[in-house]
Design a protein around this nucleic acid. Sequence first.
DNA 1: GTCTATATACTGATAGAC
DNA 2: GTCTATCAGTATATAGAC
Lengths: 220, 220
Amino acid sequence: MTKSPSQPDTPTVATGTRERVLDVSARIFRSRGYADTTMNHIAKAAGIKSASIYYYFKSKDEIVEEVLNLGTQRMFKAVRQNIDNLAPGVSFRDKLTVALRTHFTLLHTQGDYTAANIRLFPEAPPPVVKRHMCVRRSYGLYWQAMLKEGQAEGAIADTLDVEIVQLLLLGTLNWSVQWYKPKLYDLNEVAASGISLLLDGLIQADEISGNPVSQDAKDA
Amino acid sequence: MTKSPSQPDTPTVATGTRERVLDVSARIFRSRGYADTTMNHIAKAAGIKSASIYYYFKSKDEIVEEVLNLGTQRMFKAVRQNIDNLAPGVSFRDKLTVALRTHFTLLHTQGDYTAANIRLFPEAPPPVVKRHMCVRRSYGLYWQAMLKEGQAEGAIADTLDVEIVQLLLLGTLNWSVQWYKPKLYDLNEVAASGISLLLDGLIQADEISGNPVSQDAKDA
DNA sequence: GTCTATATACTGATAGAC
DNA sequence: GTCTATCAGTATATAGAC
């Protein structure tokens, strides 16, 4: 909301001090969490003194809130963009695959805001989280709407509670920030495994039907 | 490891002060997390003064470590017990269902240690987590061994990396501590949805085969 | 065993010089 | 805009009386 003057919309590279503070905050929050990140940590990483931060932000929680909101917003924007770019007649399955892959990939590449968002969400003070909830709810409702489309098409079971499914789906991906290490696992392999698990399940369909279970989601 | 004298193994009900401190610690850590839980919070809930805690524990981190270990150990014990009690010829699918359901249920019932464990894991100081890792690794390896059995039986794909699958499976369940509220969702419905999602996938098998997708895991 | 009192350190935040 | 200096609050942990 607060924006330094004469800045274009959503600057990709941090130029001013305020953006630099936000960027390093996201990076440090991502690895140290909320409570263990001090204004001094942020200041040092930004190359200023901690008192100077208060020229741009009223409090530590104001920084947290902005990092939280930016994380969700960037995630939302990327997912919607990739979905909107799909061909009109694309199957629900492919649509969901793209959404899941985008969410997962953004969690582990392209900046620290999305990963910091996942970590900060349970750790941040309740008032901050409460204010952030409206942004997060929009994103969740977007997924639920997509799932309802899938139900209408008959691609997924009518009886499912789309809210629970949404929480389970994104939960599987979100939890990966706790264990995924770029040097230890291959991002594409993990993404493919996760998407395959969520779309087709772990158990092989050992019926006569040649259903290609656990053998999909290998595009991109 | 440290145990007050003349105590039987794994006391179910906390009698002594030490056990009471541990129990309230687990409860408070579960809801407030690591950093926001103070020795004073614990002391007050245990009905003593904060200085008295140091008669039983050298430091806050010693409490955290014990809560962390107990959480994983209880989870491990419950899952193994339920698996061992199964009939010899039971299918891999049923086995996995029982394991998943046990893990999920224990996360949300029967004490705060298991839920606190999930929350503390990313928040606790690295040295504490590092010491806890051997316990956690045993539990992960137990799951991976189970998955390998499934591969040997042909129940799940041979090509899957069992470590990644294990992390994805438990991640789906673990993440639920962030959103599951007993008053808002039904535990059995969420468990059934989660297990169905993980075993059979979200997408309907719209082949001719009468494969009962998303229609299982409703025992227990 | 549990207490009171306190040491020590560090936190988020403010005041005001430059 | 960024600094130095500092306040007030609170944290973990210790010392020692009872």
